[in-house]
Amino acid sequence: MSGPTDRKHRVVTLFQRYLANPLNRRLPFQVLLETTGRKSGLPRQTPVGGRRVGDSFWLVSEFGPKSQYVRNIQADPVVRVRIAGRWHHGTAHLLPDDDAVARLRALPRFNSAAVRAFGTDLLTVRVDLVD
C-alpha cells in the first residue's frame, strides 16, 4: 500500500522526468548537475536549483535518497555542474545533518519554494568545485 508521500513522489517524478527536465535541460543557463549513472555508467544530467558560494555549489534534493541523482552520487561522487553556461568538475557530498530548510533560505527563491512545496525528504548536497 502506498501513502500520500509515495504518491506525491511518483507524480512529481513523472512530471519532472517526462516534461520539466527535458525542457529545462535545453535552456542554456539552466544549472545542470551531471552524475554518472550507477547502473548504465552513462552521464545523467539533471536540472537543479542552487547557488555557488566560493568554491562550492549548494543545492537541496527534494526527495533525498530516493532521488536518482542522489543515488548516483552515492555510487560515484565525481560530478560536473553547469553554472551560467560553463561546466565545472567537482565532488558531491551528501549532508544529512545539515538543516535543509534553513539552507533553502540561502538559495534561489523560486526553486526553493518548489522544493519545499513538492519535497518529501529534503537533503542538502554540497559540490566542492575543482575548476
Rank of each mutant, 00 (worst) to 15 (best):
L95G: 12
G64P: 01
R82C: 12
S112Y: 00
G41K: 08
V79E: 08
T5G: 05
V48N: 00
G49N: 08
R82G: 00
L32H: 03
T124Q: 09
V70Q: 15
P4G: 13
W87Y: 10
P4S: 15
T46I: 14
R17V: 09
G54N: 02
G49W: 06
S112A: 14
N24C: 09
D6T: 13
T120C: 03
D76I: 05
L94M: 13
H89K: 12
Y69W: 15
D97E: 15
S67I: 02
V101N: 10
V115I: 14
T91V: 11
G49T: 03
V60R: 02
V81D: 00
K8H: 13
V101S: 08
S112F: 06
S67T: 08
P43L: 01
N111Y: 03
N21V: 07
V48E: 06
G3M: 14
N21R: 00
P65Y: 05
P43H: 00
R26E: 10
L14A: 13
R44V: 13
N72Y: 09
P96T: 14
P47M: 00
G64V: 12
F118I: 11
S112D: 04
R105G: 08
T5F: 12
V48T: 12
N72V: 04
G64I: 11
L32S: 11
L27T: 09
S56D: 08
R52T: 13
G3A: 10
G90C: 04
G41I: 02
R52S: 04
G37K: 01
D99W: 07
P108T: 00
G3W: 15
D131A: 11
R17K: 11
G119W: 04
V78M: 05
Y69K: 02
I73E: 00
V125I: 14
T124C: 06
H88C: 07
L23R: 15
D121F: 05
L23F: 08
G90R: 01
F57L: 12
R86K: 03
V101M: 00
I73Y: 10
V127A: 12
H88M: 07
S61D: 05
F29L: 11
A92H: 01
L123Y: 09
V130G: 04
R71I: 10
R25M: 15
M1A: 07
